[in-house]
Amino acid sequence: MITIYERPQSLTANTMHYCPGCTHGIIHRLVAEVIDELDLREDTVGVCPVGCSVLAYNYFNLDMQQAAHGRAPAVATGIKRVHPAKVVFAYQGDGDLASIGAAEIVHAAARGEKISVIFVNNAIYGMTGGQMAPTTLIGQETTTSPNGRDAAVQGYPIRVAEMLATLEGSAYISRVSVHNNVNVIKAKAAIKKAFQTQLEGKGFSLVEILSTCPTNWGLTPLEAAKWLENNMIPYYPLGEFKAAKEVGS
């Protein structure tokens, strides 16, 4: 009997605080699996944001820094510039990256900062209680768009992957999802490509990962996966928006 799937080395044994069915846990594991497979655990520094994944430093068995809200790309820049040979990634939610941190992510990409960003898009603010995020869909009800997001009042959701793909400094930008098995496998491949882009010094890499928030969407985990598929993917198409051909091939 051989073990073929178990907790990756780059994850600690700590139980996670995330709500039941929240796919942050899957994304953490995918990042950890990629770090293990590329044998980077002792050469990686992670940066966690402010939001549900602020406590990621309890779950990644790596050197970590906790960044101010929205500033993870700047903190990651500081680390990477001091240790260019190390792998540096920032793990951010949609409020952290696309709202308060919009300037930081745009300029990190524009600078071609050789960091990898894991951008978890669940179309809502989780930790603070279900508020509207820049990626909240039109019509989506949140605690700060109680009658559904109205474009006339709150404007339109931002497609981050497409936006960043227009920047020269971006070397690898893709959007994936983790709402079912097939997509989890693709998501892992994309995360691996992002880390390989960094290892090959090609420039800025980001993977936008559509993720669920059962608690604040008011759905069961499985209903949330369905909702993501039927509502988020049409507005946030999956795929690679910037990819250097030979990366990791």
């Binding site: 009997m1 799937y5 994850l11 995330y18 846990g25 594991r29």
Partner: peptide, 11 residues
């Protein structure tokens, strides 16, 4: 793959 909490080990 679908477990968010590292509950499952497969052999």
């Amino acid at each position: 793959r679908m477990c968010p909490d590292q509950v499952i080990t497969v052999r």
